[in-house]
Write a protein that binds this DNA or RNA. Structure first.
Lengths: 190, 190
DNA sequence: TCCGATAATCAACGCAGTGTTGACTTATTT
DNA sequence: AAATAAGTCAACACTGCGTTGATTATCGGA
């Protein structure tokens, strides 16, 4: 997409630095993680860190951006292989989260980042809106609240699923989220 | 509850320091707020800060604890004046959040604290569980997921309500949350 | 395969914020 | 008015910051 591929050294540095931060995030919030700490864990020089990122939050942001992008792509109905099939889209998203489970678990946890969760919710919200509006064209009272409700609720289900060690299959979780969301929407008209 | 009342000076210090932090939190995340900054804004000596709190996160934690306590109390059905009336309980909670709207808005925002949201969700979750289990004694498949779904969804509704400037009345929002939650639960059996 | 370009390393820098101390001043309680 | 507790102030060593310039290692293309 953007010109040539990055230098192998750069790729390595970014990778090792990201992994080190994620490792540290398991033990404490980003507020208490220092650049020095990250560099020691990564085995790189501090100056190298600064040539790529401004501070630990900036690094965290770049990790988050990748994951949000991954979800966004899979939230596009056309690309998820299911056309307008919401279940298929959800399975795609759940599968992607499983593939990056360790990272998602940390970032969505208590010591994680509120803004990351917020970004994920936004993507879900938009997708739900696109999908369900086809079925209920006329906007009921307080419709926007419902999409927020089910989007955040869905993320909650995913969080719990991750915390429990992903005992259930992707399909099961996708189906559960689908049913709960559909029910929430149905409840509006009541 | 715990012995005598605190010295007036202590009460003032804690108050002004909390307000200063909340003010700063409007502009940046807690990760980038320094003790020095807080003290300048509060007009107190740095040594005074350290005699009460360990660091900015510790101070933030104490603010959060108060609010979580406030919600917990109102989530007790017996105390919310409505017996087992879930609507009344929700109205009580929503009213409390409105009374502390500025603070809740900041803490539940993107730049807020993931652990605070998490604590609030926990309280709601437990309350929903107590209430609804009376109506559906036999636990359906994946019941725990539903409570997480509706608890987080409820917090999402509150977040949106705060962001929109609380245009709707407490009763309206409480009713909306009640309806969405009930619907989510009903959807499980389907 | 060699060469120019790009990255990473290292040591050093002044600077800002930390957390603690002890001597002091000021406010509160009884 | 005296005793107690809290806040102020200046100073301290220390840690981490962010940047610099010189040096070494690695990469990718001609």
């Amino acid at each position: 997409m953007s010109g040539k591929r990055q230098d192998a050294r750069v790729r390595y540095t970014k990778m090792v630095v990201k992994q080190s931060l994620l490792e540290l995030l398991r033990t404490k919030p980003v507020a208490k993680i220092t650049v020095t700490e990250i560099c020691e864990a990564a085995g790189i020089n501090r100056a190298t860190f600064y040539s790529h990122y401004a501070d630990p939050s900036d690094l965290l942001q770049s990790i988050e951006d990748e994951l949000v992008e991954g979800i966004t792509v899979r939230a596009q109905p056309a690309l998820s292989g299911g056309g307008t099939d919401m279940r298929a889209t959800l399975r795609g998203i759940v599968g992607y989260i499983r593939a990056n489970a360790d990272t998602f678990r940390v970032l969505l946890s208590d010591t994680g980042d509120a803004s990351f969760q917020s970004q994920v919710v936004s993507v879900m919200e938009r997708r739900y809106l696109d999908f369900w509006q086809a079925f209920r064209p006329e906007d009921a009272e307080g419709a926007a609240y419902i999409y927020t409700f089910i989007a955040l609720g869905s993320v909650g289900v995913i969080r719990r699923w991750l915390d429990e060690g992903m005992l259930r299959s992707d399909a099961e979780i996708a189906e559960l989220i689908f049913r709960l969301s559909a029910a929430g929407l149905a409840g509006l008209g009541t």
